[in-house]
Design a binder for these strands. Structure first.
Lengths: 348, 348
DNA sequence: TTGTAGGCGTTATCAA
DNA sequence: TTGATAACGCCTACAA
């Protein structure tokens, strides 16, 4: 509480390496070496312990920002998500953050709020942070007008040595963890047809939203392949409310004209189930329901929700691994999905 | 691609202020002032635009770490949560992150994995990051043995100018956003008794977990006050699985010995509902169910889950506001909770 | 109004 | 093996 206070214009910090060195009676250089023995580990053992003890005593913690400029690189990893309070993104985030921590990297999280403009702005300021990696998990929105600028920004970041990984938004020239949305949706279509469903209501988001587009397209392709044409496709918001509203609309006529409602993600499907109930029908019995993602609650719903499982946590870990891998250059790592049939789509 | 490359030992970065200054034909000082005109805004307008243009041209972004050491303080805000992939924490995180971004702070997120040791370790390394604020949202675990060390670490951090805010873990000598767990639980007890319930099964976590302890205590107090003694209290894990297992156990005897199961959080209640179904009973009709938190899905469950609403997003925002407020010194900001009765506890 | 110079906390180079 | 000392990129008195 006093040995550390002898410097000039200090504002708010803690003891510095100088303080440790003085306390231990060695030079700053030696003190520094005592910590990162890695570089040239020729420090007398006694000094090492003396330095460590001194550090412990005065509560020294190396100043990461200072290290960053001295070393020329930070130890942070930046993650950009659309909305952390959404099970899809929070699961991915959990994977990314866990993986980052395992590498002793400090994870930074930014929320883009589903806005491409916001996303672009975030990436711009992120560059100032000089993170080792930038991982972007959001729905690529085609034709949003910011793609060019975003790519430019990321290119510049890469040119400066940064690593970029995108989650499920192929098409941009960066490494990507590619969730098999199309294949999963197609398999779901086949599985549902196999259970006897024929008349589908498909709830998808604006076609510009890539993830939705791919899932929707895969599902339609699957139906077509199975010889089940002409589902009713409803475009709505990519949220629980969107699923509710669209289903409400779909069921408006009184008796249902579809025997299953399929949404491009689970939260929409959950909204759909509630709408079905509000229409006086029983999900599963009167109208089948299926989603996509397999978020944690699916199995706890009643009826349990059929869906396409995406290993979200693993997606996050994979993104991090990809970002930290030796292989620079654009790589696309596919992540398989699998159909999970539960009681919300009983055999019909 | 060449104007920025004339320096010595550069590793991986981007253009520096030097490059901008050279490009604009002014000194570094002027260039610096052109950006943060705030301090001494006496820069010839023409220079300002020239500098800005140059920066734009070569894609300059100020190096935050460099600014941090020059200014003596960073622009990061650290958040520690137990598990980001849990609606309770992800909602709080959303609030914290949004508030941080609004203040142009960079939010950092660490996951403590419900381990006090991990939490302590995180806080230690966090100190090296020199964040402006540290917000810890986790279940305080009484007698975990790390409380002393944690407090010490945080005290040191505060002494160095940092701000600490705890979410819902009173008892430590730091500013806290205090969720009214006890009051909410008590009100829930009264409400359920008001609906005719008498024989309760209470699912709580280990008494060392403060949040659980407070909620459980409040509920029991409420029952006692209403003259409804002796609920069956079951101790289990603070998770969905814990809720399931405990309820499974509770219902083992065949016909239920309780007319309502009350869990200390919603995810446990969700597990309980599934266990009730698996026992061949109907939640709501045969056994009432209530939780705590009011996470997003409560209203979409069937039956919709009765609970005690906690404004989680607001809690996060409040924590940030508290951390950034002028008022240093320990403050406790109470956050009210409110009972929300839904169909999982129909009048009996 | 502008530029020069020194400092922020750390690491790395180079003598000693 | 150790200790000065020069970077790292930026900001800010201070002097011009």
């Amino acid at each position: 509480m006093d040995g550390a206070a002898g410097r000039r214009g200090r504002r708010t910090s803690g003891p510095t390496l100088h303080d440790v060195a003085r306390e231990a009676g060695v030079s700053v250089a030696t003190a520094s070496r005592a910590f990162n023995g890695s570089s040239t580990r020729n420090v007398k053992p006694e000094y090492i312990s003396r330095v460590l003890a001194a550090a412990e005593r005065i509560g020294y913690q190396p100043h990461l920002s200072a290290q960053a400029i001295a070393l020329g690189s930070t130890r942070t990893a930046a993650l950009v998500v659309s909305d952390i309070d959404d099970p899809y993104f929070s699961s991915i985030a959990a994977g990314v953050i866990t993986a980052a921590q395992a590498q002793r990297l400090i994870p930074t999280v930014a929320i883009a709020d589903r806005s491409p403009d916001r996303e672009l702005q975030i990436v711009r300021t992120l560059r100032g942070q000089r993170p080792r990696v930038i991982i972007i998990a959001g729905s690529r929105i085609d034709g949003s007008g910011t793609d060019g600028a975003l790519s430019e920004e990321l290119e510049a970041y890469q040119a400066a040595g940064g690593r970029v990984v995108l989650v499920s938004q192929e098409g941009l020239p960066f490494s990507t963890v590619a969730i098999d949305n199309g294949g999963g949706a197609r398999a779901l279509a086949e599985a549902l047809v196999g259970r006897g469903y024929r008349r589908f209501g498909v709830l998808c988001a604006a076609p510009a939203i890539r993830t939705s587009h791919d899932r929707c397209g895969g599902f339609l392709a699957g139906l077509a392949a199975a010889g089940v044409p002409d589902p009713t496709v409803v475009e709505t918001a990519f949220t629980r409310a969107g699923g509710y509203d669209a289903t409400h609309e779909l069921l408006r006529g009184g008796r249902p004209t579809v025997d299953a409602v399929v949404a491009v993600n689970d939260v929409m499907a959950i909204g759909a189930m509630t709408a079905i109930r509000d229409a006086g029908l029983v999900p599963g019995r009167d109208v089948g329901v299926a989603g996509f993602d397999d978020i944690s609650w699916c199995a706890d719903l009643d009826p349990a929700l059929s869906t396409v499982a995406v290993p979200l946590h693993e997606v996050g870990v994979t993104a991090m691994r990809l970002a930290l891998g030796d292989d620079r250059g654009v790589r696309v790592v596919p992540v398989a999905t699998s159909v999970v049939l539960r009681d919300s789509t009983p055999p019909r």
